[in-house]
């Protein structure tokens, strides 16, 4: 027996919609709370109100005027963009080689990469700090760019490799017969269809660098080299924590990531599933 077709908004009420809504709410609630609270004045900051009473931009103003938040943003941009560019520049040829070229010891290499990519940063932070101090890199951009690149490279190589494997090898062979050099083949034949893989690796790397806290806190104590996460954490003084300002700064910090993911959302999804579907 067929259940009667429901008309109007009632037809949207079913198990799946309810479950989806609850899940989405659960995931977005903290973000929503942060966003809403960033518009609350000092008086209402402790309340759990959904709408701020007298919404104001005072917190945003404070973040930029009382603290050097603009400097933190600049630092984060410099460090994250440089690291991401380096990671992509290195991971692309590496992923291509591991995915497509005949090579000895491919599997051990890939397993090693995977192990490195899940290695906890906290375990190496102390020796790395000593190393940085030895070579005089503390309080510099390279103190973050180099380790960020190193730590994000393995996972990016994996993503790009999986994507490269999905590209039929006949495309390369045709290019070879047509007379394209290996570099030309990589640039005009392999990279364009592999672009979603590059975007995925790029976004993951950028996000990881943008939100990294531990190394940034440890290696760069000079306020001029602080990145956003550390900067926000050190807002305020000994006796008060300016929650409103922290919320406002966090909202600003989240914008670039949100924009990136929004622009490249399709590529990211296809990039993540590439190896699985096309294998």
């Amino acid at each position: 027996m067929r259940s009667p077709v429901r008309k109007g908004w009632h037809r949207y009420i079913n198990g799946i919609t309810v479950a989806t809504t609850l899940t989405v709410l659960f995931v977005t609630l903290p973000i929503l709370f942060m966003l809403v609270s960033s518009f609350k004045g000092t008086a209402g900051i402790g309340s759990a109100a959904i709408y701020p009473k007298d919404p104001s931009l005072i917190n945003y103003n404070t973040a930029f005027s009382q603290y050097t938040f603009a400097r933190y943003i600049l630092n984060s941009v410099i460090v994250s963009v440089t690291s991401t560019a380096l990671v992509l520049a290195l991971a692309t040829p590496a992923g291509y080689a591991l995915g497509r070229l005949p090579m000895r010891g491919k599997m051990p290499l890939l397993v090693a990469l995977l192990m490195i990519s899940v290695f906890p940063a906290i375990a190496v932070i102390a020796p790395m700090f000593l190393l940085m101090r030895q070579i005089g890199w503390t309080n510099s951009y390279q103190a973050l760019v180099v380790p960020y690149t190193a730590f994000n490279l393995p996972f990016s190589i994996w993503i790009i490799r999986n994507y490269m494997m999905g590209i039929p090898k006949e495309m390369e062979e045709t290019a070879r017969i047509d007379g394209a050099s290996p570099i030309r083949t990589l640039v005009s034949i392999i990279l364009p269809p592999a672009r979603p893989g590059l975007f995925t690796a790029g976004i993951f790397t950028f996000t990881a660098c943008w939100t990294e806290f531990l190394m940034s806190l440890s290696f760069n104590s000079d306020n001029n080299f602080r990145t956003i996460p550390v900067g926000i954490a050190l807002f305020g003084g000994q006796y008060q924590i300016p929650y409103g300002t922290i919320f406002a700064a966090s909202c600003v910090a989240a914008i670039p990531i949100a924009i990136l993911v929004f622009i490249f959302r399709r590529s990211v999804v296809s990039g993540l599933t590439a190896g699985a579907v096309k294998g």
Partner: peptide
């Protein structure tokens, strides 16, 4: 050469 899967450049 013409391949079984054509190997056209998708982009």
């Amino acid at each position: 050469m013409v391949f079984q899967n054509y190997a056209l450049y998708p982009h």
